[in-house]
Nucleic acid binder design. Structure first.
Lengths: 217, 217
DNA sequence: GCCAGTTTGGCACGTTGTGACATACACTAT
DNA sequence: ATAGTGTATGTCACAACGTGCCAAACTGGC
């Protein structure tokens, strides 16, 4: 509850956190990767939580300290930016969301490093598995709706307290849809990574442009 | 698969189905009501599947023949029209979805009989419980995404096979969002049923109008 | 070294969800 | 009526899920 850490800024652009927190995040990712691997290999319904735990080198009990349910184990691989999103938004100086979002979409979905590109590649694989598995679809939906819900209070802040709550809700939905549809349609496309359909960023941009035309602000 | 029943019209406007099918649907609804009642009373996390079964007068095993999970038990109360939606769409003569949907929204969300009005009232109560409970939110999300997914093939049929799949996906999302946001914002409003915020139908209409502005067809 | 606070594992336990088999019911044909 | 067919329900057993509880191991600072 009490950060109190004045976390010496030895981390550059990455968000400043406790050592323990970053360690925990790392473990989460390792479990997620183990889970994704097993899911893709045997099909999610044929993988037990215990197997995931074993593959990640932890006990079953510890697994449930990191994830509330086994189908949640892949969420760290699904939040391509959904987390950054919030951070970026809060620190944005921009006033007009309609100008702001297109920039943020690129910021979040355009891979800049080799690691980013690899992460996106993995995400694509996971999304393909997700599309075929009801059990995992729920996790994907949860991630997106959570993102939409977290967007709302931030947008109310940006738009001012006198903004119409309905407008804010609409805007949050459009932004969330842009990311979601961009990724979904990109993942649904043929094998070629950046082929016919375009990159997820470009698709998301198009969705946002089309859907935001009726939002005056 | 084979309706074939010319179901003597003793049921008025209801869709013609097998006797067994209608019986089953009735049972589903009874279970759903029992579940909603218990959920609202004790909080969803404090209700076991066995309690729901007992309250509905069936065995635990039978409960799981009607619903795959206990949190799914309320879905029949959440599909205000999501089912009709599909039927209405398939039988629609209209060619242009942008003209079609506003009419369908009213068809689905405007209560016409006293029973409709009562059902909508119940839905509102359920949605308020849903908004506060992560466990139930998943069910609500699932209903909406399923609706969106079912919309897609039907829309491809209407728009013709040469239509851009991306456009279809976009259209399905907008339609689904209209219903979802209309209901959510309506349920989130103050106690007054049709008060300040307007009816769910009116809200849904507005969402659709705003979001569909960028869809040329 | 010692002493917080936190993380982990092991265990027990109620709950979830499913397969298998038996029974009860509805509807049909003879 | 009787036998036969298909479906709906219940009982039982069982693997998997998810959590509370406590002890052991690990972390950091004094």
């Amino acid at each position: 509850m009490e950060p109190s850490e004045y976390s010496l800024g030895a981390d550059g652009a990455a968000p400043a956190r406790t050592l323990a927190e970053r360690r925990r995040e790392r473990t989460r990712l390792e479990i997620a990767r183990a889970a994704a691997h097993l899911f893709a290999e045997q099909g999610p319904e044929n993988v037990t939580a215990e197997e995931i735990a074993e593959a990640a080198g932890i006990s079953l009990r510890t697994f449930y300290r990191y994830f509330g349910a086994k189908e949640e184990a892949i969420t760290p691989l699904l939040t391509s930016g959904a987390d950054n999103w919030v951070d970026l938004l809060t620190s944005a100086a921009e006033k007009d969301p309609l100008e702001l979002f297109p920039r943020l979409i690129d910021e979040v979905l355009v891979p800049k490093t080799a690691a980013d590109r690899e992460e996106l590649r993995v995400t694509r694989g996971v999304l393909r598995t997700v599309a075929e598995t009801p059990l995992l679809r729920a996790a994907w939906h949860r991630v997106n709706f959570d993102s939409e819900a977290r967007l709302r209070p931030i947008l109310t802040e940006i738009c001012g307290p006198d903004a119409d709550p309905f407008e804010v809700r609409l805007l949050a939905t459009v932004a969330s849809d842009a990311i979601r549809l961009g990724l979904e349609h990109w993942a649904a496309g043929d094998a070629d990574p950046d082929g016919s359909g375009g990159t997820p960023a470009r698709l998301a941009q198009e969705v946002f442009a089309r859907l935001s035309r009726g939002l005056a602000d």
